[in-house]
Simulated assay, not measured.
Amino acid sequence: MARTVERWIRDRISVGRSAIINQRRLTVDRLAAAMRTVVDDPQLRDNAHRLSADIAAEDGGAQAVTAVESRLHHTT
């Protein structure tokens, strides 16, 4: 499951639908700057709307619930 999520994130970044934040160098100021960029950049904002539509079409919420429930049933 983790690989699927990582691959999905990499795919979105590769088509310009996300910003990249280096977690090792993350500070409050860098996070705030990245958030301003995402909000203020028209292309990223448009990409976020498209990504939202993609997620809704994939029914990602239901898939996440199924994955969590599956894990819970295997650990009990």
Rank of each mutant, 00 (worst) to 15 (best):
M1N: 07
M1I: 07
A2T: 03
A2P: 07
A2Q: 04
R3A: 02
T4F: 06
T4I: 06
T4H: 12
T4L: 11
T4W: 04
E6T: 13
E6M: 07
R7S: 11
R7Y: 01
W8L: 07
W8S: 06
W8R: 09
I9L: 15
R10D: 15
R12Q: 12
R12S: 09
R12L: 13
I13T: 10
I13C: 08
S14W: 03
V15M: 12
V15W: 15
V15D: 11
V15E: 12
G16D: 03
G16T: 06
G16L: 04
R17F: 05
S18A: 15
S18P: 06
A19D: 05
I21T: 08
I21G: 12
I21A: 10
I21N: 01
I21V: 14
I21E: 07
N22Q: 10
N22P: 09
N22V: 06
N22A: 07
N22M: 05
N22L: 10
Q23E: 14
R24N: 12
R24P: 01
R25S: 12
R25H: 00
L26D: 06
L26T: 02
L26S: 08
L26A: 10
T27W: 03
T27P: 02
V28E: 13
D29E: 15
D29M: 03
L31M: 13
A32S: 11
A33L: 09
A34N: 04
M35Q: 14
R36K: 09
R36Y: 02
R36I: 00
T37D: 14
T37V: 06
T37E: 15
T37Q: 14
V38S: 03
V38E: 04
V38M: 14
D40S: 07
D40L: 14
D41T: 04
D41P: 01
P42D: 10
P42T: 01
P42A: 08
P42F: 02
P42G: 06
Q43Y: 03
L44K: 09
L44F: 02
D46N: 13
D46Y: 11
N47M: 14
N47S: 15
N47Y: 05
N47Q: 15
A48C: 02
A48I: 00
H49F: 07
R50Q: 13
R50C: 10
R50D: 13
R50H: 13
L51N: 04
S52V: 00
S52H: 09
A53L: 07
D54P: 00
D54F: 04
D54I: 01
D54R: 00
I55K: 05
I55Y: 06
A56M: 10
A56F: 08
A57W: 03
E58V: 05
E58G: 03
D59M: 00
D59Q: 10
G61K: 08
A62I: 03
Q63I: 04
A64S: 05
A64K: 00
A64T: 09
V65P: 01
A67S: 12
V68N: 08
E69M: 06
E69P: 00
S70Y: 02
S70L: 05
R71A: 13
L72F: 09
H73W: 04
H73K: 14
H73D: 13
T75P: 08
